[in-house]
Amino acid sequence: MNLFRLAGDMSHLLSVCVLLLKIRATKSCRGISLKTQELYALVFVTRYLDLFYSYISLYNSIMKVTFIATAVSIIRYMRFDKVVKQTYDKEQDTFRYAFLVAPCLVLALVLNHRFTFTEVLWTFSIYLEAVAILPQLVLMQRTQNIDNLTANYVALLGAYRGLYIVNWIYRYFTEPHYRQWLVWISGVVQTALYADFFYFYTKAWKHNTRLQLPA
C-alpha cells in the first residue's frame, strides 16, 4: 500500500469521525443528508460482501467493518435518536433514491468485468459511490448557514477521493497489471462533483467567513 492510498483512507476515516463528533457532541444532524448516509451504507454493504469470501489483509477487513458499522450508527442516530432526529432537515432533503440507484444498477449490469452476482454488486457500489454525495451537496446549497463540522466533513470526503486518484496514478506506474478503467472513470466523476464545493470552501476559508454555496 502506498502513502497516497493510506492518506486517502485516513481522510475517509476522519470524515466519519468528524460527522459522528458533530452528531454526538452537538446532538444535531442539521445540514446532513440522510439520503447520502443511507446511500453510503448501501455502497459499503454491497462492496464489502467480499468480507465473507476473500481475505486481503487485517487492515482491509478492519476498515471495511468500521465503515459499515459507523454508517449504520450514523443512520441510527438520524432516524431514531429522540433528540438528533428532530434536527434533521427532512423537508429539504428531497433527493430521490431511485434517480441514483436505478441508473447505477443498470450500468453495473451492462458494464462490468465479470457477470457474477458479487461482481455486479461490487461494480454497482463503485458507480453508486460516485454519485452518493449529490443529495448532501444539494442539501448544502439549500442550507443557509453551513456549520464548520459539516463543511469539514464534506471537505475530508473530497480529499479522500482526490488522494485515491493520486494513488491510482502512482499504482499505474508502479504496478504493471494495474488497469482499472471502470474504477478510474467513476472516481474522476466523483471527485469532479466536489470541485464546485472546494472552490467555495477555500474561498470561505481564505476570507474567514462561513461557507455558503450559491443556489
Binding site: R5, S54, M63, H113, V183
Partner: peptide
C-alpha cells in the same frame, strides 16, 4: 489476478 487488484482498495 486482475480481479484481486481491483478489490484490494476500500
Amino acid at each position: 489476478q486482475r480481479r484481486q487488484l481491483a478489490h484490494d482498495e476500500l
